[in-house]
């Protein structure tokens, strides 16, 4: 699993001769000592964001106003988020609706992919024959850009929304199949030996050993899938139209409302970040202190 292990704050710092690190010097000042860890956690990200805003301002200045700066974008965002759920006909709806529609499509496609992909992953992981059987097809289809599936979706479903859901489905199913299968294969032989000595039933082996042992791998697959799905939905909606963040970006480009495009970029990033963090949290809950 790729969850970054938190670096323990109480690890001894590597010893250096003579030179004292700025942090150590700070810590040596008694009245500052309690806030040092807080500063260490907060200051670098703040500096990073500040540098980003400065760079942005600079670029927008250099572009002579064709790229809006942070201030005008912020002002525009406040107006936009003041009424996120208005509805003026099918092509002019609030940002809230756009976010919810995109999330809904991701949820549908992703949910169906999980329903198909996870059980399939279990079967592939458990039965070598099935793994060999599916390997050529999966290896062939997995590297295909998800958007290449869009015309097939439009052809079959004859509607935009199901077609984008189909694209999400196809893009998020591979990591779930492959990670679940890898997880099943990685179940320690010791646990299976325990099952053999106890002569547990297949069902009990599945619920007590395979499922919990595979869960962390499975959640890695889910996390990768959600990341891809969220990347893909914006592009798919740009092509298909309707209500959704992707369509909104394209619509605002046609309106030449660049502030809104920038806002959309931040919203997409923020929602993606939240989805990812939620799954990281879930994965940590499900790892039961196992080494992963």
């Amino acid at each position: 699993m790729t969850v970054a292990k938190p670096v323990a704050a109480n690890l001894p710092l590597p010893r250096r001769r003579k030179t004292v690190s700025p942090a150590a010097r700070l810590a040596a000042t008694p009245w500052l000592a309690p806030v040092v860890p807080l500063l260490r956690a907060v200051v670098p990200p703040l500096l990073g964001l500040l540098a980003f805003l400065l760079l942005w301002t600079l670029v927008s200045q250099l572009s002579r106003g064709s790229l809006p700066g942070p201030v005008s974008t912020w002002a525009s965002a406040r107006v936009l988020f003041a009424d996120p759920f208005y509805q003026n006909g099918p092509n002019d709806q609030g940002i809230g609706w756009n976010i919810l529609m995109s999330l809904g499509r991701v949820g549908m496609g992703f949910g169906m992919a999980a329903l198909v992909g996870i059980p399939l992953g279990f079967l592939i992981g458990r039965f070598d024959f099935l793994a060999r059987m599916t390997a050529p097809v999966i290896s062939l289809l997995r590297p295909v850009s998800p958007l290449a599936w869009l015309p097939i979706g439009l052809l079959v479903f004859k509607a935009a929304s199901p077609a984008s859901i189909w694209v999400i489905f196809i893009s998020s199913i591979w990591p779930m199949i492959l990670n679940t299968a890898a997880g099943v294969r990685a179940v320690p032989q010791d646990y299976l030996n325990v099952a053999r000595v106890l002569r547990l039933s297949e069902w009990k082996v599945f619920t007590v050993i395979l499922l919990p042992a595979t869960l962390p791998h499975m959640l890695t697959g889910v996390r990768l899938a959600v990341g891809t799905a969220w990347l893909v939905i914006v592009a798919a909606e740009m092509l298909t139209g309707g209500v959704g963040l992707g369509f909104w970006v394209w619509d605002e480009w046609n309106n030449l409302n660049v502030e809104h495009i920038l806002i959309a970029i931040f919203v997409v990033g923020l929602v993606g970040l939240l989805l990812e963090q939620a799954l990281v949290w879930l994965a940590r809950k499900a790892s039961f202190g196992q080494e992963n």
């Binding site: 030996n193 000595v197 106890l198 202190g289």
Partner: peptide
């Protein structure tokens, strides 16, 4: 294998 011949494994093999 069977439970009448219980095994204590080298690395405990407890389910985490």
């Amino acid at each position: 294998p069977g439970p009448e011949r219980a095994v204590v494994f080298q690395n405990h093999s407890l389910l985490p």
